[in-house]
Amino acid sequence: MSRIREEYIDTGKVRFVYKHFAILGPESSRSAEASECAAEQYEFWNFHDLVFSDQATNRSSLDQTQLTSLAEQIGLDSEAFQTCLSSGKYSLQIARESQAIQSLGVRGTPGFLVNGVFISGAQPFEVFEQIIEEQLTAAGD
């Protein structure tokens, strides 16, 4: 993700969009809700990166304590974050978003669409690079 950001997003060649696809049970729904609570404080992407980094290295359980700890690491207002997370106000929205993606036939996570080209699973940077370059060429960039 960091290389895609450095080489394509920050250079204006790629726009990156995140959609919730919380299909792995209550813990994934709660994590998605936590990211929305981080978004309330305009820190969605920092939270996004930190959670995936944590999952890649520690694979720690994403309970409320851990989520709050991650939120504090990126400087979020802990009390507001916990209040938001406890309210469950984003649960329905996340469920709907996940259902909409599921209705398109997507079954696994993560998944990516690069200008409509589907990439299944966590792939190395080179896979993204090849497709992005093809799309940039097709777009005449």
Binding site: V17, A32, W45, I132, L136, A139
Partner: peptide, 17 residues
């Protein structure tokens, strides 16, 4: 994130777990 006018758009649908 990124430029709205960027020629390529990546959509990630993912689960934080």
């Amino acid at each position: 994130q990124g430029d709205d006018a960027a020629p390529v758009t990546i959509i990630e649908f993912s689960d934080f777990k």
